[in-house]
Design a protein around this nucleic acid. Structure first.
Lengths: 98, 98
DNA sequence: ATAATATACAACCAAATGGTTGTATGTGAA
DNA sequence: TTCACATACAACCATTTGGTTGTATATTAT
């Protein structure tokens, strides 16, 4: 999941489709790469559970996956807290050091 | 930076060295890979600014980089907020949808 | 029915990634 | 000084990644 978010294009896609569902082809027009490349990015995001697709006529609408987004938020807060605490303790260590 | 954190070993290293400075060789004993591999991971983290090294005799002590960690926390909170808001708006869209 | 659009997917490619071993260098210990 | 340890780094390798083009299929429009 970290890996799926490690690509700038994919982060951008996730951010955009969280707003509103956007078709793959419409997404594709926003990037300087082929349709197929964008489609692959969407596939990566989908298999990481970050977005889902819903057929609408001949289009495939991509939307951010609410539950997985909540899961990420949770993960991030957790990381944040652990790190904050470690950082505090690290301050102590620095004082205590030598 | 997302990329540097996309590897599990590196996330683990970051988490550990935030506690206390640990030498590269001591870190290396914790993983099922060569010393050189661990050393490379540390180098990646270092060039992403997530950790810094400090010479102590013949050892090189790796510590989490407080300021960059704060930066990450900031970034993560920002992402979190943006996503939260989008998610809320998305809830609206879903109600409004169809 | 035919054409055009939107997508999926395979095959391919270059570059990046994550690992290895080997070698060189700096530092502490005997 | 000599040995051992800790590190740095180069060269190499396999796999993954991010991109391409080409082809097939589904759906809408004419």
């Amino acid at each position: 999941m970290f890996r799926a978010l490690a690509d700038a294009t994919r982060r951008d896609i996730v951010t955009r489709v969280m707003n509103e569902g956007i078709s793959v082809s419409r997404l594709a027009t926003s990037y300087e790469m082929s349709f197929a490349a964008v489609q692959k990015h969407v596939a990566v995001l989908q298999s990481a559970g970050l977005v889902s697709k819903e057929r609408n006529g001949r289009e495939q609408i991509v939307r951010g996956n609410l539950s997985s987004i909540h899961r990420i938020q949770h993960l991030l807060s957790h990381f944040e807290e652990v790190w904050k605490q470690r950082a505090l303790r690290m301050g102590d260590v620095l004082n205590d050091d030598d």
